[in-house]
Amino acid sequence: NQASVVANQLIPINTALTLVMMRSEVVTPVGIPADDIPRLVSMQVNRAVPLGTTLMPDMVKGYP
């Protein structure tokens, strides 16, 4: 099973992602692959992302 990117904390709308905000976890449904975490750094979320939420491609501005 492939690990996905999961919010490690509440991420407010328009926040630029940092490594501490994300963790990898095997979840269903599958979200953004954990391998993409380095690419996500400094990209902004377009909505508030609660703790434990799987990051989906449509939540991150400019992804992929």
Results as ranks from 00 to 15, higher is better:
N1V: 09
Q2L: 14
Q2I: 15
A3H: 11
A3I: 12
S4K: 00
S4V: 02
V5L: 03
V5Y: 02
V5W: 02
V5N: 00
V6R: 03
A7V: 09
A7W: 02
A7E: 00
N8S: 12
N8K: 10
Q9H: 12
Q9G: 06
L10Q: 15
L10S: 12
I11N: 00
P12M: 06
P12N: 09
I13N: 12
I13F: 12
I13Y: 10
I13C: 05
N14R: 10
N14K: 09
A16G: 15
A16M: 11
L17Y: 02
L17T: 03
L17N: 00
L19K: 12
M21G: 03
M21P: 02
M21I: 03
M21H: 11
M22Q: 00
R23G: 07
E25N: 08
E25D: 14
V26K: 14
V26A: 10
V27C: 04
V27I: 05
T28I: 11
T28V: 09
T28K: 15
I32T: 01
I32S: 00
P33R: 15
P33E: 05
A34S: 09
A34Y: 09
D35R: 07
D36T: 12
D36N: 15
I37A: 06
I37Q: 05
P38Y: 10
P38F: 11
R39W: 07
R39G: 12
R39N: 14
R39H: 14
L40D: 01
L40S: 00
V41K: 06
V41W: 03
V41C: 05
S42C: 06
M43D: 03
M43P: 00
M43G: 03
Q44V: 10
V45G: 01
V45W: 01
N46F: 07
R47E: 14
A48Y: 12
A48K: 15
A48D: 14
V49E: 02
V49N: 02
V49C: 05
V49S: 01
P50I: 07
L51Q: 11
L51P: 07
L51F: 13
G52V: 01
G52F: 05
G52L: 04
T53N: 08
T53E: 06
T53I: 07
T54C: 04
T54D: 02
T54E: 01
T54F: 03
L55V: 08
M56E: 07
P57G: 08
P57N: 06
P57M: 06
D58V: 09
D58Y: 15
D58R: 13
M59R: 03
M59F: 13
V60C: 03
V60K: 00
K61Y: 12
K61R: 15
G62Y: 06
Y63N: 06
P64Q: 15
P64A: 11
